[in-house]
Design a protein around this nucleic acid. Structure first.
Lengths: 226, 226
DNA sequence: AAATGAGTTTAACTTTTCATTAACCTCCGA
DNA sequence: TCGGAGGTTAATGAAAAGTTAAACTCATTT
């Protein structure tokens, strides 16, 4: 799900360019070029970030910013200002802007700013678990479990890592060497034999579902078939 | 209670001036001029905002920023950069900076930025109590208590922090390393063992409800199961 | 200045979990 | 049919975690 941006910019050509540029960078942009209808549009949609031009013909951007801030105390607001006027900057921060950008600006910096704002919010949230489907089984990498009909089987760290690699390469060859390097960091006789032991263990865990199989490709590696 | 600023700046005269200026504007400033000792000082005090110079003689400001971000995902970080290098700016945002300031800068703008950050924080800060449900227990973070059938159990600060982290990750893995960094600020043999002691204590407090459990995931961390 | 006490760390001992290794066996391909 | 690769099982030892208690720290009280 992409980040929704609320953009208020009266300059038609600049607004169009900025909108396209943001969209290329995977943001979902709603662009309003009329300051007077900005607030009603804002109320209509659930936005993640606001970008407001300070210099608008009828209403000024700061007023809109203040009104948005009254409605939503959380949403990040960025002001666009053509002038480098200190006055503008101070007013913007006074309203509770997250940042201001002076035109002309570097678009990479803008994207970086936006991503930083999004990222910070993502840091607070708990990252969601990696879950793989293996036939009727459900494999949870973080929890290190495989579940079949509510029966939970715990896995050891190495079992988990190996099964994850097999899942990533599902129905495709997982070269022995790759697994050894990635999990064991080494590739000698003993680690090879150790890996075979783990394959046996995984086969045991997964034998309840007839349709899945860890097949050996003699001399090359293994393949998880589903 | 004034806002506590953590300032890392190696230039002695500039650092002194900046510190005084911030203090005149009612900020409580802790100034470190040696990048190498920055992190230990940071761990020692409860700060509200960090201002880090990017150009330091030994360690660079970005490294310190990254380490601070590991310990505290919330704290606002501002980078000071002498250069207007785009590289620096992008790196800073990548780390999760709240803002950057290019030297020489307007001190009024800096103060405005700081006040904007503080103000936003004040709005964000949840005045209402953080209360988590853990099975039949009720855990109040601010009061540092867990209640079962009206029986109140007081918790120590570390017990409280650990239980909160477990609650945030409820039914999901709390990586050992994450808890150690956030609560102990460090990650060695002794802090690890200390954490184990706290897990034992929490288990003792929570054992009245059969349906909840603090489960260990060998080699990765703990999981509060409800 | 000594005593207290809560909070935390360190130490010591026990239990659990896990990866490695060895041993023996089977399969596959040349 | 021979040799190497793979399948499988069990034993071993190392590392992580569980637990309890003693030691330490530091602010507050006496």
């Amino acid at each position: 799900m992409s980040v929704k941006i609320f953009l208020v910019e009266d300059d038609l050509s600049f607004g169009a360019v900025l909108k396209s540029y943001l969209e290329i960078n995977d943001f979902d942009v709603t662009w309003v070029n009329d300051g007077q209808h900005a607030l009603s549009t804002f109320k209509g949609g659930a936005f993640d970030i606001c970008i407001l031009d300070v210099m608008l013909p009828n209403v000024d951007g700061f007023t809109i910013g203040r009104e948005i801030r009254d409605i939503n105390t959380q949403i990040p607001i960025l002001f666009l200002t053509a002038k480098t006027l200190k006055e503008d900057i101070l007013t913007g921060y006074g309203i509770g802007a997250d940042d201001y950008i002076t035109k002309p600006f570097d678009t990479d910096v803008l994207i970086a700013k936006l991503n930083a704002i999004v990222q910070r919010r993502a840091l607070t949230a708990v990252p969601e678990a990696e879950i793989y489907a293996i036939g009727k089984y459900e494999f949870n990498y973080q929890h290190r479990t495989i579940i079949l009909d509510g029966n939970k089987q715990k896995l050891s760290p190495k079992e988990t890592e190996l099964l994850k690699l097999l899942c990533i390469h599902k129905n495709d060859l997982l070269p022995r060497e790759k697994a050894l390097k990635q999990i064991w960091g080494d590739d000698d006789y003993f680690t090879t034999r150790s890996m075979d032991v783990f394959v046996t263990k995984l086969r045991k865990y997964l034998r309840e579902d007839e349709n899945i199989e860890i097949r050996n490709i003699h001399g090359s590696g293994f393949m998880l078939i589903d």
